[in-house]
């Protein structure tokens, strides 16, 4: 037997359940959207770490190279100075004599 009030009760109950189903879906939606920010942040952090790692690698590579270049530059400069010094030592007397003679050689105008 289905009386009038019982029918209404059934329908009301169905409506109530229905709105709680929808309400639950809305709540799920809210928390899902919050997750979007969190998951995005995870990916972003991973990306930043990756970039930082690349950067450190590059930095180390370059610093190593640069140190090597610096050492080579110092070495080459020293070698160059050494050769310059040796060349000077071998030519010093000749150059000094050359200049000395120029100073002491006085044009006498005798022929004029």
């Amino acid at each position: 037997m289905t009386s009038g009030p019982e029918t209404i009760k059934l329908l009301l109950k169905a409506e109530e359940e229905a709105s709680s189903v929808v309400e639950q879906a809305r709540k799920d939606r809210e928390s899902r959207l919050k997750q979007a920010t969190q998951e995005a942040q995870k990916e972003i952090n991973a990306y930043r770490q990756e970039k930082e790692r690349e950067y450190q690698e590059e930095l180390n590579k370059h610093s190593g190279l640069s140190e090597e270049n610096t050492k080579r530059l110092h070495r080459e400069t020293e070698q160059f100075r050494e050769r310059m010094r040796k060349n000077f030592e071998s030519k010093k007397d000749e150059v000094v004599q050359f200049l000395k003679e120029l100073v002491l050689k006085v044009e006498s105008f005798e022929s004029e």
Binding site: V21, V22, Q24, A25, R26, D28, R29, R32, L33, Q35, A36, T37, E39, A40, Q41, E43, I44, Y47
Partner: peptide, 21 residues
């Protein structure tokens, strides 16, 4: 209705995450 909300929520989730990333 609930399904519709869930489907849309998933789309929004993806779009929001993608644009933030």
């Amino acid at each position: 209705k609930a399904n519709e909300i869930r489907v849309k929520a998933e789309e929004e989730f993806n779009a929001r995450k993608l644009s933030a990333v």
